[in-house]
């Protein structure tokens, strides 16, 4: 994992984005001194204000927000719901074939950030996203980028299992069908079978593919949703508290599954369970009141948090 604040090589980014990234890196350095107040370098207008000391922060080893060859490269990402700033200039990379866990108290902006990555915030009236989010070097915020096309490349699993009121087969076949991925029924059968197998659900449902997906148990429904997501072979899977509605057994199965899926996909998971973050992720990001407080390798964040807010939260002292 690189300690560099420079983004992935050859990213066609505008110069002002670099400055914004520097500003955030600079802020992150100061943040390590425990001074959260200085973090408010965003003016209400949402324009990034670059402090004079911004360049000094760039390249500082203290920031572990970036990785080499990232899938997602986010620089100074802010989200506004009307006048309210729900996410404040977040700079972070998502690495390939690894799990990034996002933890933090309710309302800290972790889900809001997750929804930026597949532009789901577009569907909320009054939501506005600023900053740069690069997926494989391409700005997904670009108005010319079609949101539906983008979402086809980024899977999402929600907090509450939400299978369509269709058969198990049709649930998994939904994505391949809407994207016209298959030419024959046999091909579609193959995708459905493979996806269910990879989601660890095949053995339980292979004899009742035509029965409704809504008739499965909660844990099975969530695995069905994961099968539905991987059927379109996305590059990244976003998970928004995927286990919070499940019992411990079903949770363990999903966690095992996340571990297996990591071999093929980048995964970003929002979780309220610190144990879960520690179990499934390689990197952990801690959010607090809309700000990214700390991000680093999971072991390091949990054993040796650099910020007092992170430490308070993971040790349960958070009030």
């Amino acid at each position: 994992m690189s300690e560099s604040t420079e983004p992935g090589q050859g990213d066609p980014r505008a110069p002002d984005t670099t400055a914004a990234a520097g500003a955030v890196a600079g802020a992150a350095t100061r943040q390590d001194n425990g001074d959260v107040g200085v973090l408010r370098h965003l003016k209400p207008s949402g324009r990034v204000h670059v402090p004079a000391s911004a360049e000094a922060g760039a390249g500082n080893a203290a920031s572990q927000a970036t990785v080499e060859n990232p899938v997602f490269s986010c620089r100074g990402v802010s989200v506004f719901y009307g006048p309210k700033e729900a996410l404040k200039s977040v700079t972070i990379d998502v690495g390939r074939r690894q799990v990034l866990a996002m933890i933090g108290p309710s309302g800290c902006g972790k889900s809001t950030f997750l929804r930026c990555l597949n532009r789901m915030n577009d569907t909320i009236a009054g939501a506005r996203v600023t900053g740069t989010i690069l997926l494989d070097g391409h700005n997904i915020q670009d108005p010319a980028q079609d949101a539906a096309q983008l979402r086809a490349r980024i899977g999402m699993v929600f907090q509450k299992p939400n299978p369509f009121p269709k058969s198990i087969y049709d649930n998994v076949a939904y994505g391949p069908r809407i994207h016209g991925m298959t030419r024959s029924r046999a091909q579609l059968d193959d995708i459905v079978c493979t996806s269910l197998q990879r989601a660890g659900l095949w053995d339980e449902v292979k004899d009742r593919l035509t029965s409704p997906g809504t008739g499965l148990s909660g844990g099975q429904q969530q695995r069905l949703c994961i099968a539905r997501t991987i059927a379109v072979q996305p590059e990244v899977i976003l998970m928004d508290e995927p286990c919070s509605a499940l019992d411990p057994v079903a949770t363990a199965r999903i966690e095992d599954l996340i571990d297996e899926l990591r071999e093929s996909y980048a995964i970003v998971i929002v979780t309220h369970s610190m144990q879960q973050a520690a179990r499934v992720s390689q990197r952990t990001a801690y959010f607090h009141l809309g700000e990214l407080i700390e991000v680093g390798e999971t072991d390091r964040v949990f054993t040796n948090p650099r910020h007092r807010l992170t430490e308070d939260y993971i040790t349960g002292r958070f009030g």
Binding site: M120, A148, R151, M156, F158, F164, Y174, I178
Partner: peptide, 23 residues
Amino acid sequence: GLKDASTAMGAYPWRTITSVIYP
């Protein structure tokens, strides 16, 4: 949640309406 699921799969709104919401 159903609408979001379809949207997140990359379905255009009309597809979400006809394939998920109407049924």
